[in-house]
């Protein structure tokens, strides 16, 4: 299968406020296949958000090579959708118009994409909230709108930075399965950043374990659990084996034996 992301010896050093150089990423390399769901797990400050921002063209890299869909990353592009931890909806736009923001920015055909937006919103269970303003929605609903917005222009790559981090654990679990449903339908590549080990194993085809200072990839796990995934997969020995291995890697890295 062709590659979606190729990262080769990526390094990022930035100057902190007190003038010292901080090494945020060191020799990060991995590839992601088209249509693959890959998670990056690590504690806060391990550079996973920095990595995502470099991929989104928001931060320059210090050295190394980076390409998406075979093209060098060098600024904004249409084939990426982004979801952050906060929904970041435009509070003056109704739900449908929020979802259509990328369509307007990319100057795509509104009619054609409005149909897509409606389909997405219905799939996400928001069919009855099209005319609502963000303040009228719950946190989980707002995040679903943000997800629809990220998907509406049919990106080949979806970048997600702890997208469910602000939600309670039950809503979070539910949102994970909804994401999987949308992903199975829309077939984009997903790079999903989280600090929740179970969430990463539950959702992904592959999990990359990252350690901080400087950020580097410690371990890669193929998650060969059957799809479509169900909640009870959490109770299987397979699942527990994967998550406990990740837990152990992070624990050891933290200086424990």
């Amino acid at each position: 299968m062709p590659e979606s992301i190729r990262i080769d010896r990526l390094c990022k050093v930035y100057r902190s406020r007190d003038g010292t150089d901080v090494e945020a990423l060191r020799d990060v390399f991995f590839t992601v296949k088209q249509g693959e769901f890959v998670s990056i797990v690590g504690q806060s400050g391990c550079g996973k958000s920095t990595l995502l921002k470099i991929l989104a063209g928001l931060l320059p890299r210090t050295s190394g090579a980076l390409s998406i869909e075979g093209q060098e990353v060098d600024g904004p592009r249409r084939d990426i959708g982004i979801v952050f931890q906060k929904p970041l909806l435009l509070e003056w736009r109704r739900v449908l118009d929020n979802v259509l923001l990328p369509v307007e920015i990319f100057q795509l055909d509104r009619q054609e994409y409005e149909a897509k937006a409606l389909r997405l919103l219905r799939t996400a269970g928001l069919g009855e909230f099209l005319r609502k303003y963000p303040f009228e929605l719950s946190g989980g609903m707002q995040q679903r709108v943000a997800l629809c917005r990220a998907l509406v222009a049919e990106p080949s790559l979806l970048l997600m930075d702890e997208p469910f981090g602000a939600l309670d654990s039950l809503t979070r679990q539910k949102m994970g399965f909804e994401l999987l449903r949308l992903w199975e339908e829309w077939k984009s590549t997903v790079l999903f950043v989280t600090h929740d080990i179970d969430e990463a194993v539950m959702l992904s085809d592959r999990v990359l374990v990252m350690s901080p200072r400087p950020g580097k990839i410690l371990d890669t796990l193929e998650i060969d659990l059957p799809r479509p995934r169900e909640i009870f997969v959490k109770d299987t020995a397979e699942f527990i084996r994967h998550s406990s291995r990740i837990r152990r890697r992070l624990w050891e890295e933290d200086g424990h034996e």
């Binding site: 970041l88 923001l101 920015i105």
Partner: peptide, 21 residues
Amino acid sequence: DPELLELVRAMSRSRWVLFWK
């Protein structure tokens, strides 16, 4: 929110877009 600006900047670098939208 600086992240909102980043979200838009990831789609477009146009100051016009940023201003009007």
